[in-house]
Amino acid sequence: MVRTLYPVSLRRALIRRAASGGVHGFKSTLFRPGYAPLLRVFVPSPDGAWLSDDSVLACEGELKRSGVAQHLRPGDVVWDCALPGEGNVGRLVWDGSYLLDLDYTYSPGGDIPSYIHSLSVAPAYFHKVIRTGPNPIVHADLSPWAAEILAQAQLMQDRHASDIPQGAVGRWVHRSRCRVRGREPIVGVQGMTVDAGWTGTLIIETEGTNEGMAELRERLGAPPPGSKRRSSTVGPPKERARTWRLLRDRSRPGEIWLKAVTDKDRLQ
């Protein structure tokens, strides 16, 4: 059974009007303008709090039978409310064709799957819908801005020192920036564009070591310094090359901070 507060056609009409400011005071447990919709299905899981492949398929079946599936967009969140409401238990993300489980590579509570292109939705799109830590994981291919990022990369000391029992310890980072504009095409994805919420400056940060700079170049699909290869001959970034942490405490409107995720950040 899929729980909706309104018939699908009416719900979509209200969502469009709310997004354009046409419905004053519009409130719904399904949707908040600018954030991912949270749709609810009720599929008891014989495997407890962990959804098996069969349970996920059953959730997809409920969406199709209700007629909601044809209205879903990539990034919509579906919650199997037959499971406990703790953390992200029972939450799945629609990728355009299938429901995907969350990714647990870097967080025990789960992050958005790597198949979701974060640049296609607002930076805060999943805030409070997918419950994450203060610095959530995002997946973005920044190779279209490689030349700008590499040209402005600088080695500098981070002002945000780490406190340890022996005292405050500073660290060195490679930091750069690039200018992003909404509605720019997302590389490798036909018909998908950058959401207007990303318009502004991206601050990119990696470790302040030779390895950190080498990884930045790898993430951007750029050849090593002195190489005769052209950037276009380098393959697309690997999955981890698209993975960053969005630093909420430093970000502000028009300026988003991204920090490269390394193997050291993976859960053991």
Rank of each mutant, 00 (worst) to 15 (best):
E205T: 15
R230G: 15
S227G: 05
G182H: 03
G182Q: 01
V180Y: 00
G212H: 01
G235R: 05
E211H: 09
E184Y: 06
E215N: 11
M213N: 08
S232W: 11
A196L: 12
R171L: 05
G235L: 11
G191F: 10
R183N: 12
R217H: 08
E207N: 08
R183S: 15
Q190H: 13
K228R: 13
T233F: 04
T233H: 11
T233M: 05
V194E: 05
E207G: 12
T206P: 03
E184F: 04
P185N: 08
G182Y: 02
K228L: 14
S227T: 07
V180I: 15
W198M: 00
W172P: 09
H174W: 14
R183Q: 10
L202I: 10
T233Q: 12
T206K: 02
T193Y: 10
E184M: 12
G208I: 02
T201N: 08
P223D: 07
R181E: 08
V189Q: 13
Q190N: 13
S232L: 11
G197I: 01
M192S: 15
W198S: 05
W172C: 10
D195H: 14
W198L: 03
V234H: 04
T201D: 00
Q190R: 15
R175W: 01
G208A: 06
T199R: 02
R175I: 08
S176R: 10
V173P: 01
G235V: 12
R230K: 14
N210P: 06
D195W: 02
R171P: 02
E207L: 14
T199N: 07
N210C: 06
G191P: 02
C178H: 07
M192K: 15
D195T: 00
L202V: 09
S231M: 11
V173H: 00
E218R: 15
G221N: 03
W172D: 09
L220A: 13
I186A: 06
V187G: 05
R175V: 13
D195P: 03
L202D: 03
E184K: 08
Q190K: 14
L216K: 02
R181I: 13
P224H: 06
Q190P: 07
I186L: 12
G235S: 14
C178Y: 02
P185I: 13
V234S: 05
R183A: 12
T199S: 09
S227Y: 08
N210G: 10
R171G: 13
R177D: 01
P185E: 10
R175A: 07
S176M: 03
S231F: 00
W172S: 11
G221L: 00
L202Q: 02
N210R: 10
T209H: 01
I203P: 00
T193W: 00
S176N: 06
R230P: 08
D195M: 00
D195L: 01
S232K: 15
P224S: 07
P223K: 07
R219H: 01
T193Q: 07
R217K: 05
E184V: 09
L220H: 09
T201S: 08
S227P: 12
G191R: 09
P236S: 11
E218K: 12
G188P: 05
M213K: 07
V187H: 09
I204W: 00
L216H: 02
V187L: 07
V180P: 02
V189Y: 12
V189S: 10
P224G: 06
